[in-house]
Design a protein around this nucleic acid. Structure first.
Lengths: 153, 153
DNA sequence: ACTATATAGTACGATATGATACTAAAGGCA
DNA sequence: TGCCTTTAGTATCATATCGTACTATATAGT
């Protein structure tokens, strides 16, 4: 494996890290004070894949430790954006339901981003963005698949 | 602006967030206990662009608040991986110099990643990775340029 | 059924990150 | 020169994130 491979991977992952940082900062600035991208992401996920997920399912979906998800869900619950109810099929577990307030919060957040997306979309052609998707998906799948193989300790 | 534009941006930024999370976790697991990607990134930056940068320059390069950079540099300094010396040209400021230990730390970290990159490179064709670079750069530049225009408060 | 193991969630503590507010030095301008 | 504003860095504090350890429940093996 030539060094250029490592260089290329570093370069891609470095760009990814900067993009994530900038996008997160921009988005967070649009959310009501006290809310983070993590809160929105959970609400958005519950809409996309349907609510009634368990905390552990959510933690896996976002690749965060379950303690982090407990914390994030606690914030959402205190704000009445989700409700946690016992899981009738498993006494250890719970299910997370989004409330009407939660749905409204998500929709307002998305609407609030409209002008930002519009400004950015004027700077990056739609084809450029669309062309990124397959490569990013392939990269994400590779990293995800590799996660199961810790390799050398 | 059609909704599909917002959807596309969400999709790209979501993939970016997951990739960053997975890559960071993988990398951090290879670093000596107590060190984070942020520490490595600073060392790597000092090698790439040359040391003698000021803390503020570094904060800007990584798009983090200067207080965060102060903290990160503190960790590097305690571990003797960098030295902070006064800036003779500006009494308010300092300059950051990488030590021999710092150089060695960086090289070992990169070497330690070798097997990981090799495994991942087997899963994602080099062309796929290379093809991502221009689009990611364009996206990063757009986000960076937009940062100066807060838009609607 | 009984025991051992695995799993879901949480409590607690450590630390990274980031906002606010401060100090000290520079720079601008009368 | 003296004053005002800007800038570099840090101290302090709030909180997000995550590791460890614990409890309660479920599952497997006998």
């Amino acid at each position: 494996m030539p060094d250029t491979t490592t260089d290329l991977w570093f370069r891609v992952l470095n760009e990814v890290a900067i993009i994530d940082q900038l996008a997160r900062a921009l988005f967070e600035a649009r959310l009501p004070s006290g809310f983070l991208v993590s809160h929105f992401s959970v609400l958005n996920h519950l809409i996309r894949v349907g609510d009634g997920r368990t905390p552990l399912e959510l933690a896996r979906a976002f690749q965060v430790p379950k303690t982090t998800m407990t914390h994030t869900l606690g914030g959402l619950e205190r704000a009445h954006l989700v409700e946690m109810r016992p899981n009738p099929e498993d006494g250890r577990s719970k299910r997370v339901w989004i409330t009407e307030e939660g749905r409204a919060f998500r929709e307002e957040a998305i609407a609030g981003l409209g002008p930002d997306v519009a400004r950015l979309a004027a700077l990056v052609p739609e084809e450029t963005m669309a062309a990124l998707v397959p490569g990013l998906e392939a990269l994400r799948r590779a990293l995800d698949a590799d996660r199961d193989r810790p390799g050398p300790p």
